[in-house]
């Protein structure tokens, strides 16, 4: 089983997101960076699948040279290979990103054979374009379903089938994708493991294959980031002890929910 996971390096936000003076990026000076949450779960899922079925996980990212950190993190939790498509760190639009990733995957497949499964995050935590995985899968002719929170690989059915669950209100939908396939996964598909000491050591030795991309910009470009206007709420304090319960139930009655 050959699995490819695409991940994105994003700022790790706390209670507030600040913007740099030029308005073109999140000010991450006090935040640090992480793997976008859906994709962190994507790597975990890919590693679990190879633990059950054998095979290898390749992690691919497009971003600044520092995005190598996210590839090393993936290696520390079990991924086998890392590929970086390096940019100057500016925000790439979704079309350009998709073309660059598609080219990179074509190159990897030409060298080492096709991937059985491509794993994307449903959407990135920061720019949230909701499209890169779908564009790449379409360009490569792979079936893709988004919103996936459960994967079961049946390697014995024909050329292989991916049974994928998508959460809906009060239950889930089931899809059966013929392999080679692609999925857009969501956080909650698993609980990602923490790196072990051995994993950390292995990640230091990870050889990262670097690639450049000549993908042209698409139609959308970033002008400026800004925080939404905040509505100031006057919070009414109902009390400082369990005796406030009476006032709480008054509120609930007023709203007609009791």
């Amino acid at each position: 089983m050959r699995i490819l996971c695409c991940v994105k390096r994003v700022p790790a936000p706390g209670a507030k997101i600040n913007v740099t003076d030029d308005g073109l990026a999140v000010d991450a000076s006090h935040l640090g960076f992480a793997t976008s949450p859906h994709e962190e779960c994507g790597v975990e899922e890919a590693v679990q699948i190879t633990e059950r079925h054998g095979g290898e996980v390749t992690v691919l990212t497009l971003g600044p040279p520092e995005a190598a950190d996210q590839l090393r993190y993936a290696a520390s939790v079990g991924a086998h290979h890392g590929v970086l498509v390096a940019t100057d760190g500016s925000a790439w639009d979704p079309q350009r990103t998709a073309v660059a990733l598609t080219d990179a995957i074509r190159g990897l497949e030409a060298a080492d054979g096709p991937f059985d499964l491509l794993v994307f995050g449903n959407e990135s935590a920061d720019s949230g374009g909701f499209q890169v995985g779908v564009r790449v899968a379409y360009a490569l002719g792979r079936p893709i379903v988004n919103g996936i929170k459960g994967i079961e690989v049946d390697a014995d059915a024909g050329d292989g089938v991916v049974r994928a669950r998508r959460e809906i209100d009060g239950g889930f939908e089931v899809y059966e994708l013929p392999m080679p396939a692609a999925v857009g996964v969501k956080e909650g598909i698993n609980l990602p493991r923490y790196p072990t000491m051995r994993g950390r050591l292995a990640s230091k030795k990870l050889e990262i294959a670097e690639q450049a991309s000549d993908a042209e910009p698409g139609g959308q470009s970033l002008v400026r980031l800004h925080r939404p206007r905040e509505t100031v709420t006057e919070t009414v304090i109902l009390g400082n002890s369990p005796e406030a319960a009476s006032a709480v139930v008054d509120v609930l009655e007023e709203l007609g929910v009791v």
Partner: peptide, 29 residues
């Protein structure tokens, strides 16, 4: 807490005491 600042109403106390008290009060009424 950010949640308190943004809320319409708040009770500044231990939830482990407040939640059962709310339940009791609804039962009583």
């Amino acid at each position: 807490a950010n949640m308190v600042v943004k809320a319409d109403w708040a009770v500044i106390a231990d939830l482990h005491e407040v939640i059962p008290a709310i339940t009791q009060e609804i039962k009583r009424r």
